[in-house]
Design a protein around this nucleic acid. Structure first.
Length: 509
RNA sequence: GGCGAUUUAGUGUAGGGGUCUAGCACGCCACCCUCUCAAGGUGGAGACUCGGGUUCGAAUCCCGAAUUCGCUACCA
């Protein structure tokens, strides 16, 4: 039996990075076993619906390479894949439960329920209290009929029989048993918007869509027994899916689930893509816009709560797929280690093909006002290659390699103090003379021995001369090998910069 | 409060009775490399939540406690 899994987000806002991780694990499991990945939109909460959220989900998954086989966009044999378009199906199933006596109608208003909660310390709508509430059980069929006809709003509640141990077989946690007495009579359907709640829609859809494995976050574990009961009530136990409750992604510092706020507070994205909130107008940063490569995000996320069983860390999505197994999932929540995420991105940038890196750098240059047409792709590419090992994000290429495109307009004061002395201008003049003895292109393998030889012959201090040289060309004491820089720039530009530095740098007194 | 889950260094994890003086990675520190900053290499500091058992022997098995997290909505 090939598995059919589903990722079932609610379009109530941007897809959270924890949701992405859940989607990824669904994907890896499905692909590992040649199964099918379904994307179902669970928009049963009309109150919290956010326009644009569904597109955001699709775009995010597409960016990350988490492909979908069946869904709203992809179509498929078990559609529609959006719950708000499945009302007829839910109504029919609610009726089935009602007819079988496994559910009942309740008229209690939100205010009445609130009052009940106030009156009773640990109020729960269940076997112990349903007998004194306003529902079809206490009112009788006739009165219930009358109230419905009169247009009174109602909900349908699941009738939970108390005192039964219900066991869920979870693929990462093993057997989890809870007593049905602690479950309340969950609302399954609301007449107000003619929509089911999560619990009902979820079970019905998973069954109808022939889902074999329900892979979701740990926050669903407490309601899993309720879902088991629902499968029983429908008579679907023989085809009930296996459950997998993944450990949660936790805040990097303090306690609790990773939330939207943590990103702003700690300075890292918690969303895959930048999100513009249509209501508040707030902008939340995204991994994509921050400069993360999708492969790095996938790799990083996969290793949060799962490991391949050996020491490998850098793995493509296909490698992850081939190794994926729930037996190697951990049970405890994983604190979100943002530093490690940066490291993954660093690694993936190092592995980028030259052309791709060149393209990325061109964008960065353009954003910083450089006319990229003035430089050849080769020049841009070589500059990027030289500095890529010291960056984590493409944007940092600018900090590291701007001097290849713009002559320094200031000189690092600390470096000046350390490396620029009264004698330096004269030595720099001499250096220009030496450079002029060399080919105009300043090939490193020629320039390096020549200049180093000159420094040695003169008995100059190597570090001081080279760093003054660097200061003049780069503006500070950092960057790739000096002769690699000068080879790329060529003699004219190098000479111009040295002259400029000699006239600009004033010794501080 | 109730119910459930969880527990190896700062973080992610390996480990499934002796091979553990507990491995790997990120981060941190030092050294090497070196014209600088990185990268890289080498090394270092740093952990089995606690208490009882079981056993010749426990990070590994059992019990208890504690911890942290989640759920406890006409939200998912």
């Amino acid at each position: 039996m090939t598995p059919r899994v589903r990722f079932a987000p609610s379009p109530t806002g941007p897809l959270h990075i924890g949701g992405v991780r859940t989607a990824l694990f669904n994907y890896l499991f499905a692909r590992r076993h040649g199964g099918t990945m379904v994307l179902r939109i669970e928009d049963t909460d009309s109150q919290r619906f956010v326009p644009g959220a569904e597109d955001y989900i699709n775009e995010s998954l597409a960016w990350l390479g988490i492909t979908i086989d069946e869904g709203v966009r992809e179509g498929g044999p078990y559609g529609p894949y959006k719950q708000s378009e499945r009302r007829d199906i839910y109504r029919e199933h609610v009726k089935q439960l009602l007819d079988a006596g496994r559910a009942y109608i309740a008229f209690d208003t939100p205010e009445e329920l609130e009052a009940a909660r106030q009156a009773t310390p640990n109020f729960q709508y269940d076997a112990s209290t349903r007998g004194r509430m306003r529902n079809s059980l206490t009112l009788g069929d006739e009165e219930t009929r009358r109230l419905i006809d009169a247009g009174e709003k109602y909900v349908v509640r699941f009738l939970v029989e108390p005192g039964r141990d219900v066991t869920v077989d979870d693929m990462v946690r093993g057997l989890v048993t809870i007593n049905s007495s602690i479950l309340d009579d969950k609302v399954l359907y609301k007449s107000a918007d003619d929509l089911p709640t999560y619990h009902l829609a979820n079970i019905v859809d998973d069954h109808l869509m022939k889902i074999t494995h329900v892979i979701r976050g740990e926050e669903w574990l407490p309601s899993a027994p309720l879902h088991v009961l629902l499968y029983e009530a429908f008579g679907w136990t023989d085809t009930m899916p296996r459950f997998v409750h993944l450990p949660l992604l936790l805040k990097p510092d303090g306690k609790g689930k990773l939330s939207k706020r943590d990103g702003d507070r700690l300075g890292f994205p918690v969303f895959p893509l930048e999100w513009h909130d249509p209501k508040s107008g707030d902008i939340s940063s995204g991994y994509r816009e921050k400069g993360y490569l999708p492969e790095a995000v996938v790799n990083f996320l996969a290793l949060l709560g799962w490991n391949p069983g050996d020491d490998s860390e850098i793995m493509s999505i296909d490698e992850l797929t081939s190794k994926f197994d729930f037996a190697r999932c951990s049970k405890a929540g994983a604190k979100f280690d943002y530093e490690k995420g940066r490291w993954f991105n660093h690694k993936y940038i190092q592995a980028l093909p030259a052309e791709k890196l060149t393209e990325l750098f061109k964008d960065v240059l353009a954003k910083n006002g450089v006319d990229t047409a003035a430089f050849s792709d080769e020049y841009i590419g070589r500059a990027a290659e030289m500095v890529k090992e010291r960056i984590n994000f493409p944007a940092e290429l600018w900090d590291q390699a701007r001097f290849f495109f713009v002559a320094p307009d200031s000189y690092d004061p600390k470096a000046v103090k350390k490396r620029w002395s009264e004698q330096t201008p004269a030595i720099m003049d001499e250096l220009i003379g030496e450079l002029n003895k060399l080919p105009e292109t300043l090939p490193a393998d020629v320039a390096e021995p020549a200049i180093l030889g000159w420094i040695a012959d003169k008995g100059y201090h190597l570090g001081n001369v080279m760093n003054a040289f660097r200061l003049a060309v780069v503006g500070e004491c950092k960057g790739p090998h000096m002769f690699a820089i000068t080879e790329l720039m060529g003699r004219d530009e190098v000479e111009r910069r040295i002259r400029r530095a000699v006239s600009e740098i004033k010794l501080a007194e």
